[in-house]
Structures are given as structure tokens and as C-alpha cells.
Design a protein around this nucleic acid. Structure first.
Lengths: 200, 200
DNA sequence: GCTTTCACTGAACGCCGTTCATAAACATAT
DNA sequence: ATATGTTTATGAACGGCGTTCAGTGAAAGC
């Protein structure tokens, strides 16, 4: 009886079409442009139909945000090949800022457009895992190989680096680029200084 | 003829009442809670009346944001008494983060709730002045007294410090405090590292 | 008293997210 | 083939939003 299978497939397809329409809207106009009626128009269904696939607008946003966050984390993957943990940390920082600059709407979606939703996307329920475990592990490696000043904790340092990079990107977006230095140059300088500050 | 004077005074008073009602709402529920109808209820006038005093909701928000920004800048004023520019820079950084922690809704209002409005509040039209001239001047003083590594520019460094502190505060607000280190401790550590990184 | 001015408002417009009774399409059972 | 049940889709509505505008009534000027 392949009928139920076909139905499930069709249902999943429509769900996906909703998500893709929503993503296109967000990449075009930001999260504030994401409207049930606009999505409905895009997929050529009634607004009420969307509620057969999602509980509401927030849940669509969360799913987009999860995808976006995964995209950000995946952008660090190639850096695992860097042997020197210090160099790897620096490259993670630069990649982070570069991701923000190259995907502004995606970055805003994850971290800036819906703070109350960001929470569960970045630190999912229950999982006490570090969202940037890759960064933390690299810092731990720096500590383990005795490269850092004694007394520094990996959790603290990795969060410091994250905050510093996030500060560069988010400040760039909210204050406008006109009066600010080039973000990539700032990221480089930030890495230089913090590394110089924590290396033994 | 004191009649027109009285009328102007009454008009100004109502304008102020609108602003104070709006501020109370924002401090209570954030900018998203700021609604023309809610303000109208609070001042016991019709929503349409507000438009006799403000072009629209955004202009009310901008005025609140300007006040809030001034409040933030003023919180640095006592630090001018610190003689050592290095110590002064550190205290500015700590004061910045402390302001964010002690006035979360105010900080959100300035930097996070309405990015498109933040732009003109932080860097008003035309004025190419540094919004944190105080910080920049202190860094210039550090350079002038030869305390820093040669080649470092005051604009770049002051923006780096700003971004670093903003990163700590804004990340704390968007990711939630649960999985993050204490912001004030992070601020202290950030200052330690960046200072160690830039001092000669 | 008459007229002008001006603060003020009720009602509306077009958005928004969301709900629900209803209808149509379809699969299943008889 | 007919009847029954299930899934899928929708139009219309609710309450809320920012904003506009014709109209009202009281105060001001003559």
C-alpha cells in the first residue's frame, strides 16, 4: 500500500516548499519580512494551510535558524586540518567574521533578529554542550601543550574569543560600516592582540 | 498675551508625557512592547493625538534611544579623573559592560532592538565625530605617552575595545546567561588580555 | 455674537498571526 | 457502486498593529 507513503512524501514536499519560500524571503528582506501571508502567496496556498505543517511563524523561523547555525559551524570544518592550535584558533576567528560579512542576513537571523529564539537554537534544550565545542577544544589543546599563560581556563577563553568576534560583526551591522574600520582587519587585529595577550 | 505661551507649554508637557509613558513601557517590556495604542492608553488620549506630537512610532523610539545613549556616555564621565590612561581604558571597558548588565532594557534599546534606528542615534547625520571620543582620546593618550606597541592606530584600537565589550554584553543577552561565564569577569579578562596584547 | 483656529477623536484602511467551521478530495469498507 | 471516515485545504473572522482623515467641539480673536 504505497498510498500512505505517497501522501507522506507529498506532505514532506510541501513542508519543504514552505521552508524554502520562507528562506528566500528572509534572505531577501530579513526576518521582519517573513510573513505567513507572504509565504502562502509564494507557495500558492492559503495562509491557513501553513498551520497544517508548522505550529506558527516562530517555528518556521527556528528551523531556518537551525539550518543557518549549522551552516556557520560547518564553515569551520576545513580548519580542522590546521595543525598548530594557535593558528587554528586565529583562523576560526577570521572565518567567523568572514561568514558574517559574506552572509549578513544569515548572521542576523542567527544572532540578531530574534534573540528570544536564538537561545534555543544556539544552546538546544538540555544539551549542556558548548555550541562551539570545536573552538573550546582547540583552546584546550593550546593549554595542554603549554602554550598559554598558566591559570587561564578554556571555557573562559573560547567565550572571550567568540564574544570578541561577535562584537566585531554585530557592531558592524548595527552602527553601519561608514564610521567603522574594515571588519576583517579588525578581526585580524583582535586575534593578534588577544593571542599576544594569552600566549605564555 | 500669555495665551500662546501657555498653549506651547501645555503642548510641550503632553509631548513629555508621551515620552515618559513610552519610556516606562520600553523599560517594562522592551521596544517590541511599545505600541501607539498602549502609549495612548497610558496618557489617556486617543492614539491619533500622539501624531500631533510625533510623526510616528519610530521617532518616539529614536528620542528614547538618544536619551539612553547619552545616559551610557555620561556613565563614563567620572572616569575622566583617572590619571593613568591604561587604567582609564580598562575602567571604561568595565563600566561599559556594567552599564549593560545593570540596564539591560536600555542597552538593548540602544544597540539591539532596532538596528536600523541605532545607526542614526549612534552616529548622527553628518557628524563624523567618534561616538566614543572619550575612549579614542584615552587610547591616543596611551599612544602619545609611548605605552603601546608602535604601529597601532587609536581609531582601530578603540573600536576593537568597543567591539569586544559590546560582544560580551550582546552575546550574553542573546544566548542567555546559562551557558556563559559571568559578563563582568569576562570583561575583566578581556581587558587583561587586550591590554597585555597592545602594551609595549 | 460671529468666525476662525486648533486640539482632539472615532472610524476606517491595510497590514499582521492565528483560529475554526466548512467544504472538497480522497481512501477505505461494505 | 454506495456509504463512511479521514485527510487536506480554505474563506472568513478575531484581535492587534501603525497610520490617516473627516469631522466635532471648545477656546480665541474680532
Amino acid at each position: 500500500m504505497g498510498i500512505t507513503e505517497r501522501k507522506e512524501r507529498q506532505k514532506a514536499e510541501l513542508r519543504q516548499r514552505i521552508l524554502e519560500a520562507a528562506r528566500a524571503i528572509v534572505l531577501e528582506d530579513g526576518l521582519e519580512g517573513l510573513t505567513m501571508r507572504r509565504v502562502a502567496d509564494a507557495i500558492e496556498y492559503s495562509p491557513a494551510t501553513i498551520y497544517l505543517h508548522f505550529p506558527g511563524r516562530d517555528e518556521i523561523a527556528v528551523e531556518l535558524m537551525q539550518d543557518a547555525f549549522e551552516q556557520l559551524v560547518n564553515s569551520f570544518r576545513p580548519l580542522a586540518a590546521i595543525a598548530d592550535p594557535v593558528e587554528r584558533v586565529v583562523q576560526i576567528g577570521l572565518a567567523y567574521v568572514r561568514f558574517g560579512m559574506e552572509n549578513p542576513e544569515t548572521y542576523r537571523l542567527i544572532f540578531m533578529d530574534a534573540p528570544q529564539l536564538s537561545h534555543e537554537v544556539i544552546c538546544p534544550e538540555g544539551s549542556q554542550a558548548d555550541p562551539f565545542a570545536f573552538l573550546t577544544h582547540t583552546v584546550e589543546e593550546m593549554i595542554a601543550t603549554g602554550r598559554l599563560e598558566p591559570g587561564l581556563r578554556a571555557e573562559m577563553l573560547s567565550q572571550l574569543l567568540w564574544a570578541a568576534m561577535h562584537g566585531i560583526v554585530s557592531l558592524h551591522f548595527t552602527v553601519g560600516d561608514m564610521p567603522l574600520e574594515d571588519p576583517m582587519q579588525m578581526a585580524q587585529a583582535m586575534c593578534d592582540m588577544t593571542m599576544r595577550g594569552m600566549l605564555a
